[in-house]
Amino acid sequence: MAALNNPLVTAVDNFEQWILLLDSTIRIATPLLFAALAGMLSERSGIIDIGLEGKMLVSAFAGAAWAAHSGSPWQAVLVAMAAAMSLSMLHAFACITHKGDQIISGVAINMLALAITAMLGQRLIYQGVLTDDLRLMPLAFPELLPHDDTIVSLIYWQLLSGHNALVYFAFVTVLLLVVFFKFSPLGKRLSAAGENPLALNRSGVSVELTRYLSVLAGGALCGLAGAYLSLGHGAGFVDNMTVGKGFIALAALIFGQWRPVGVMLSCLLFGFLDALSIRMQGIEFFDSGYIIPVQLIEMLPYVLTVLVLAGFIGSSSAPKALGVHDKF
């Protein structure tokens, strides 16, 4: 472990290393962002969603399977969304129609997703790597900016371009959701369902229907998160490939205070921490002989979330009727 190829030392010196770090931050943050926005739609309407992990996993599986089967990655994205939405439907059916416990339902969804994808995964032919024509490929627009040595070009080529369409769409979604919550009648009803369902009920609007819509919309976004994992970021489905990303997304949702922009920023932060910890495996800290324990960096998102939740950082502003079964 010589100081020669110590990426941290070089990273500080080297602008390009930073850009690469940010680039992988964006790649890692994208599925988190989709999943966290999915959770936001559901939770802003009052339905706790801890089944993000399971929905991502199922949609990653369904997407990969359909891509292998049909040969069309974009069809596969739609199938992935449908798969996640069917689990959302189950969640909504249990929690809204039958007033079941939202957390128990989420736990069940996570377990079922893990079990079913693993069981079906072993039976499917596509096993293994998807070829490039079955994946969502990076977009690049070389005519926009020449590839040269300037910083602008570097930023454009390394950081901004070369992602697949879902990455850009994730950030567009943030913007759309800001407008949706601020201006649209449905957005206002959705917030009302999460803040004061009784008031919404009193104004004659069906709280159940509003919540169904938002949970299903959440499912659609979650499907994009899963599709990104198996069709974009990765090449095919691997057992338990989400490895807790759904829960990191949940953490980002809380850390971002259930607001679109806040959620985006916290996804970027958690993505950055993850990218950092990958680069720091077994690296000495400035030649001091200390190895930076990767596990401690991995812990950070969770610790930060606990601190936010406890109001030690900012003030936690969960929707008031989150997880509450209302009686009218």
């Binding site: 079941g100 416990d101 339902s105 736990v107 996570n110 693993a118």
Partner: peptide
């Protein structure tokens, strides 16, 4: 060999679903 340990997880998940989440169904 078509079945992994996931079968246990599947049963657990289904029990939690029917016994907990869909209790009132």
């Amino acid at each position: 060999d078509r079945i992994g340990n996931d079968i246990v997880l599947l049963i657990q998940g289904l029990v939690i679903l029917f016994c907990g989440a869909l209790e009132w169904m």
